[in-house]
Write a protein that binds this DNA or RNA. Structure first.
Lengths: 210, 210, 210, 210
DNA sequence: GCCTAACCGAGACGGTACGTCCGGTCTTTTT
DNA sequence: AAAAAGACCGGACGTACCGTCTCGGTTAGGC
């Protein structure tokens, strides 16, 4: 089941729509987010400036600050709303195939925005704003429902026992991908994903508890 | 018995000691590193300023820059030299016991400096200075020799088959600890470490390859 | 008898009335001019903002800019149309009396708007818009015709010789009033005007040329 | 008697010399003041920016703000310390000659900095900072002592009666020069000064009181 | 009585300057 | 020569204001 992700608000706020006045131009949101992601990919979080983002989007700085209170918020929102690949689950007939397909899709580096470089910038932003930290948990792995479906299938195929500690095992791939990214700068290759799945993930799932 | 880590230089440079003149006051090094770690724990990497570090250590800024070429280098060096728990390997008689003891020692949060908060600051520093990135790999896990010794014992006890992909499996604990740290702000508790070892690490090591 | 000044246009433009459509609401003009003068008196030209003027008049900014092309133009127009005392010439029977009456009327500080503070704001506006500079010359002294009438009477009474350099002597009072205003912030009091007339103006007019 | 004006402080503050540390580089003061005056003359007060001043002096903005709290303060200080012509009094043998020489010297437009353009900028600065208003009174006329000496000579030569209201008459020339400057943008020419002296100043001084 | 053009309040837009802050360097005096 | 203090350059930050544009809604004429 695929989730259509669209204009997610990081902090869910109600709608205090101020009557009259010119409404925010939604087109500027997208232009600014794109500009932010481009710059993030090109020069990284620290060298990316708000002025540069505004200039690239042919916007004024006030237009940026009207939407996001800081650089970090802009980056996080841009990432969540523009760079997050869809994460629907294919059915390949095996647990290994499903897991691999899902991981590849999430960590695909041929996305319009190079996920790896942008992800490093995103982590910078998150670290500077601890209150947004859990965002990383959200975006570095597929939605909970997708993960659950994946394991349900595997159980019904008899590939693995009824899993326990799924919330922990579900962290294995995102943890190792991000660690790799941060310590080497390299995005997780398909080979890396395959190795993690074969060497760590599957044995953990297959293990009997006693 | 592991090596006592003391005054490690992150980038091993030789000794171009400029003969003559007043030598650097070694006492200032420690004061500055402590001040840096305190501030890192209190307000985080981005809000920590070199001026504040110098002021807290009752030092001048030049005294800082005479020792470290940048803020990131200071933070990394402070972390490595002040906040890094020793990592010698006890012999508990079982693989599980050894691994748990080692992980607990490395991630002990009762150190004089709160490892978790400081580690987050350190990651910020590393992200801003990509050339120092691999430092994180180094300090987030025990020395390679210690890890090898641990597995050698387990093999000789017959607990696990001759391990393959040790370089990948060795990343499991640091990856998951750091992911937890970054996404929740919580340091890895002993219970968390135990669960990771039982649920992920040991099954991976015990799995037969085919 | 002086002319009633009413809705003077600073730059005389013809009438390109765009046929059809709702006409400008003349009531907004006055409200905006008043708001502008109030703010000018309260906080001065530089700290007065168009937003504040519009807000005080419960108007939108476009309503301001539909009428005046810039802040300076608004201020000048407001001054000319709201704060300019009438300047008709009484006949007191003597040159001294006429001059004093005229000056007092022009520099009267009991007007609904405090002329002095507003005048300072006006000068700021003029300095920033050099093309409007001569406006100051116009509004800081009575109309040329009134001045000429004043001297004609004095000559016919035999109080002074046929005056020469009237254009220069006519500047004495406005110059000294404005200098006083700018350098002390104090408006010209009746005593000040009297002293200027007795000490400077009348001797200049009585002097014989040779 | 000439007054050597050098490093005048607009607001006289005591000396709380902070012991150690690098002292303010006096050379930067001069460079910044010069840059400010140049820009003031070139483009006027409103279009002159602090960034441009700093850039022209090859300084950082902080170096400007360490010295002056605002643009207006910088301009005023620059004017007072760099652009103020000396005002010693020549002895030409006649009141008219002395007054003319003094006025010409003060309003000389061939000074290294074009006094007129800068003066207009200065007035803008003063109007925005009412607390500094009297500065204009100070710098727009020669020192009080010089003026007194001028009239003392004229009295002893028998050219004029013992003068009364000198403080008022002394304002005639600065008032009219500044009014001219503000309303026309033209600096006072030698001919203008001559006419003011002959038509207004001298008759006022020669008049008998009764 | 309806149409249409232009008004109105509200407020977002691009742009520009402000004044603050900080990283990393340099310069003083003191030890 | 190192240490403490602090000024220096450079450059990004986030704020404020100008003058323009856009929204939904209102208000004259002209038909």
């Amino acid at each position: 089941v695929a989730g259509q992700i669209d204009e997610v608000e990081v902090e869910g706020t109600e709608d205090p729509r101020p009557v009259g006045g010119r409404p925010l131009d939604a087109g500027r949101d997208a232009a600014l987010r794109s500009a932010a992601l481009e710059l993030l990919a090109e020069i990284g979080y620290d060298r990316m400036t708000i002025d540069a983002v505004a200039a690239r989007a042919k916007a004024g700085k006030a237009t940026v600050y009207r939407r996001w209170p800081s650089k970090a918020d802009l980056v996080i929102d841009a990432f969540v709303n523009e760079a997050l690949g869809a994460a629907d689950l294919p059915d390949t007939g095996s647990l290994r195939g499903d897991a691999l397909a899902l991981a590849r899709r999430l960590w695909d580096d041929d996305a319009p925005v190079p996920r790896a470089r942008v992800m490093v910038g995103l982590i910078s932003a998150l670290l500077a704003h601890p209150e947004l930290r859990e965002t990383l948990a959200t975006i570095s792995r597929p939605p909970q429902s997708v993960v659950e479906e994946l394991y349900r299938r595997a159980v019904s195929r008899g590939e693995i026992p009824e899993p326990e500690d799924l919330d922990l095992i579900g962290l294995v791939i995102p943890s190792m991908c991000i660690f790799r990214l941060v310590t080497t700068g390299e995005p997780p290759t398909p080979e890396f994903l395959e190795k993690v799945i074969d060497t760590v993930l599957l044995p953990s799932l297959r293990a009997r508890r006693d």
